[in-house]
Nucleic acid binder design. Structure first.
Lengths: 345, 345
DNA sequence: ACCGAAAATGTAAGCGCTTGCATTTTGTAT
DNA sequence: ATACAAAATGCAAGCGCTTACATTTTCGGT
């Protein structure tokens, strides 16, 4: 008894060709370049395709054509609305262009990121989008060797003429800090994501420092706590910061999630936000409008970055277009968590 | 002048074989079944691999081996913490097993979902996870023909002996509703996601109805508004519901996002939650703990589903294990948005 | 009707890998 | 030493598609 008797093979291009009484080349052309084929042939072939319920084998196609029509994205985490949103937009564009997305998350771990990148390349990604600039030079070397187009997202500047689509993290944070300073804040503390191998986080801190410097304050004295990405971590960091003396009148946070944690912690400590202490975020995710008080934060064009990244990647691969550097606008969204400090002293 | 002079070809298995003075078969075995090869050979081959900086070509491998080691997930949307979380867990397991994840989102559109499923199969996904049972029978037929293992997630029951990993949406919603009824609620309204081709949403409504019936109330009279998935939609739906007379004392929502919208709307209408009206959610995402009042909701084991889905898929593909149906526990998380109604009349 | 260019189609050589089978090497028991 | 099974390796035939090049068909102009 043949145990796998029902494992009938799938129809191949050959089968279609035989059935439609044309060569495999013609079938291939009908599928890939319909306009290179007579209307009659096209109809006949398509009919056969339908009749046999044929689906092309992408591996074979990729092997023969030497491109996979697949694009990768390696992001720090999917559990974060901002990246998820960007991804969703990224994939929409790809699908609209008949391409497929490969995703991997690195959990903010450079080693995992490297593995994932190599894996995507091995799987034949035609192009790849990465978040931020910070990574070992050998990774970039590897990518160049393989001649795989790369887009750096989430930052408006990149090195070595690489493509990027993002915004100026320094400027955005600086603008927010300046606004706070103009409201009278002088003692500003910062809760940041870990800045090692995270240029976005570093830039945001730098932006705050720059604003302090602009105002003639001691930027280096700014209390800074680095922590992981979660509400709980934001809470803990806030507690650490408020243990200092004198306490800051404003705690800036490197992202909204940390800020929400900070607000929670403040409220648990019986502090009024923004009465006793102001808190700001960065990203403008949904959470920012839900938390009470609603978060004053920096709006970041997540979807737009995802969309543009896909378009740029497709252009570079399909039209051999030149790398571009796109710097998008951000703006401060004023809500309720930032106000003038109560004690101006 | 050769314009692509710098397009040096990547090393292939052949190159490694020649360099290491073995056959391609041996290199292949060294890479895939190291224990079928002498220690000495293995070392020599691996050394050569490193020296040439060789990476296997997955398309070729997939074509020859007739499996891609790739697993797909088609989810309604990535912009939703619950699916994102599940995905993250799904991918972690895959990566730990040397496999890759393909993701696609359908935007809750059955047609897009179908296209995405077919696309994944064409791309050679070795297995696939789908959310919920509702879809055209021909899709299931297609999948069976192709003999691709499928896992239905987000629901604890499936038809035709298909594998699933999830929970009982009816029972979970019923339990929550019963709790509310025991608090004294009699006039209960429901805001649901669209129930067409969404069995999870339908089941949750059914659960609420079942509870009403248990309590001897008229389940069919329960006001029901169906809407899309967003905070704004939740707000609008809440307004619609509260325009009725008599107003409900409890508005149950099919998910946390809608519930947050409902709370927002209530507050904008000057209604106290839960004083004037109770509101419940479903999912227990982060948002639920942030919104004020914090949401009483049903906790759903998102990560666990993702993890188990991956494990089951791998087992079915690699070990030919039998389909399984896994029904996970859920539980009501009591926070502040549900309380006894003020007017018991 | 005939010619030549352009359009359509066919031929067949791979793409880089896996794997069944054949062959060689190794290890063990005599 | 010798015989033999088991382990390691090699040989070579594909996997299903694309595409350069060769061949045939079509069609406008005469």
């Amino acid at each position: 008894m043949d145990t796998k008797s029902y494992n009938r093979e799938l129809p191949t291009l050959q089968d279609v060709a035989r059935e439609a009484r044309v060569s495999t080349a013609t079938v291939s052309r009908t599928l890939n370049f319909p306009n290179q084929v007579t209307e009659a042939t096209r109809l006949r072939v398509m009919e056969t395709v339908r009749a046999l319920n044929y689906t092309p084998n992408f591996s074979a196609r990729a092997l023969a054509a030497r491109r996979t029509n697949t694009y990768g994205a390696v992001i720090p985490t999917m559990e974060n609305a901002i990246f998820a949103r960007g991804l969703e937009a990224f994939q929409k564009v790809l699908v609209a262009n008949g391409a497929t997305m490969l995703v991997a998350s690195s959990s903010y771990d450079p080693q995992i990121e490297e593995d994932q990148i190599r894996n995507m390349i091995a799987r034949g990604a035609d192009g790849i989008v990465l978040i931020g600039n910070d990574r070992k030079p050998e990774i970039y070397r590897f990518l160049e060797e393989r001649q795989v187009p790369v887009i750096i997202a989430w930052t408006g500047s990149s090195l070595a003429g690489r493509s990027c689509v993002g915004f100026d993290n320094v400027a955005a944070a600086r603008q927010l800090a300046l606004k706070a300073i103009s409201l009278g804040h002088r003692r500003i503390a910062f809760i940041s994501a870990h800045t090692v191998s995270n240029d976005r986080a570093r830039d945001r801190v730098a932006g705050a420092r720059a604003a302090l410097r602009d105002a003639g304050l001691d930027a280096d004295a700014m209390p800074l706590v680095e922590t992981k990405y979660s509400i709980q971590c934001g809470q803990d960091a806030f507690a650490t910061i408020m243990a200092a003396d004198p306490k800051p009148t404003l705690v800036m946070c490197g992202n909204d999630v940390l800020a929400v944690g900070a607000i929670k912690a403040a409220q648990e400590m019986g502090l009024d936000v923004p009465g006793d202490v102001s808190i700001t975020g960065f990203d403008d995710i949904e959470l920012a409008t839900i938390v009470s008080p609603a978060l004053t934060t920096v709006h970041v064009p997540h979807r737009q970055m995802g969309r543009l990244a896909a378009e740029m990647l497709l252009a570079e691969v399909r039209d051999k277009s030149e790398p571009r550097q796109i710097n998008l606008e951000t703006h401060v969204v004023e809500r309720q968590s930032l106000a003038a400090p109560r004690d101006q002293g």
